[in-house]
Simulated scan of single mutants.
Amino acid sequence: MKYEIRGRTEAGAPTILLSAGLGGAGSYWQPQLDALAPQLRVVLYDQRGTGRNREPLPEGYSIAHMVDDVIGILDEAEIGRCHFMGHALGGLVGLELARRCPERLDRLVLVNAWDRLDTHTARCFAVRQRLLDAGGAEAYVQAQPLFLYPAAWLSEHAEWVAQEEAHGVRHFQGRDTLLKRIAALRAFDVSSQLGDIQTSTLVVATRDDVLVPWTASQRLAQGLPNAHLHLFDHGGHASNITDPAAFNSVVTDFLYL
């Protein structure tokens, strides 16, 4: 697994590993780097099957496989413990890591994540898959911003969105990979085990997220013994991009930076 380290590079520096959502790209976290890098060693990576780690995924690919990759990165970089921040699918990776290897984690930040897939989110993924089947990568990527960003923000950032769409088509992870990754998040369910996860956790959600209802984060925070829920009123599914100043402030406060 290829990865990169930003910010502090000295051995033993406090560290955070960032895990993206279904797109899988480490670059998703660009708006957070200025806030995190001055005080932390920041580990970025593209999830297996995407970006610089693009390769065919095995049958039965799961969130557990994704956690194996994270553990491999930590071992390769000789990082014993770290903070972990995951967005949506990346949050599921964080939950499974906290369940399996709590000794590897200091603090956990879950952004628009869930303990089991909500019926509304499942409907959204079904629609996106039909778009992929009917219109190919271009149709899938063109629809993606509708699930990520609020309408007013999309209107104000039309040029940026167009550039992201073009980039998304050029670097599309491939139908087989995408469907295996969607199947992995569909199958994930730790709802009966939340009470066993003791890691100090910040759960972040946005009331106007059209992909993952904020109530999924509420359920997470209620089920985790050491969790705090922070709700933004606006920002959509990707509030770390639409309002990075507010998002970064909440995260750095939680990490005591």
Rank of each mutant, 00 (worst) to 15 (best):
P58F: 04
G80T: 13
G49Y: 10
E78H: 14
D69P: 04
M85V: 08
D75V: 08
Y45E: 12
S62L: 09
G51F: 09
V111I: 15
V111Q: 09
D118C: 11
G49W: 03
G80N: 06
Y45V: 07
T119C: 10
A77G: 00
E96K: 08
P38A: 00
D115W: 06
V43N: 01
L108D: 13
G90W: 03
G94H: 03
D106I: 15
R104I: 13
E55L: 09
R81P: 02
L74A: 06
R41K: 07
V42Y: 00
W114V: 09
T121W: 11
G86P: 15
M66L: 13
N112R: 07
S62G: 02
V109T: 13
G60A: 10
L89F: 11
P102Q: 11
I79K: 02
G80R: 12
P38H: 00
T119F: 10
R123Y: 12
I73H: 00
G49T: 12
Q47C: 09
E78N: 15
I71P: 02
D34N: 14
C82P: 05
S62N: 09
V43C: 12
F84D: 04
G86M: 15
C82S: 13
A88D: 09
M66C: 07
D118Y: 04
F84T: 01
L44T: 07
G94C: 14
R123V: 14
T121G: 09
L40A: 12
V43W: 01
I63Q: 03
P58Q: 04
Y61H: 11
I79Q: 00
R48P: 12
G72P: 05
I73C: 01
D68N: 11
A35W: 08
L40K: 07
L74K: 09
L92G: 02
A35H: 05
V70T: 08
R54C: 04
F84Q: 01
L74N: 02
L92P: 00
A122Q: 15
L95P: 02
A98H: 02
R116K: 15
A37K: 00
V42D: 06
Y45I: 13
F84E: 02
R81M: 11
V111W: 02
A35K: 00
R48F: 04
G94N: 12
C101T: 08
M85A: 03
R107P: 14
N112Q: 14
G94A: 13
V111G: 05
H87V: 10
I63A: 04
L74Y: 02
G86V: 11
H120I: 08
E59N: 07
E76R: 04
D68S: 10
L108I: 13
W114Q: 05
D106V: 15
L117S: 06
A37F: 00
V109M: 10
V111M: 11
E55K: 14
G91H: 01
Y61S: 08
W114M: 14
L105H: 03
L36R: 02
L74C: 01
D106H: 12
E76Q: 14
A122N: 05
V70A: 10
A64T: 07
F84W: 07
L74P: 03
H120W: 14
E78M: 15
N112M: 14
L74S: 03
E78S: 15
E78F: 05
L92R: 01
A122G: 05
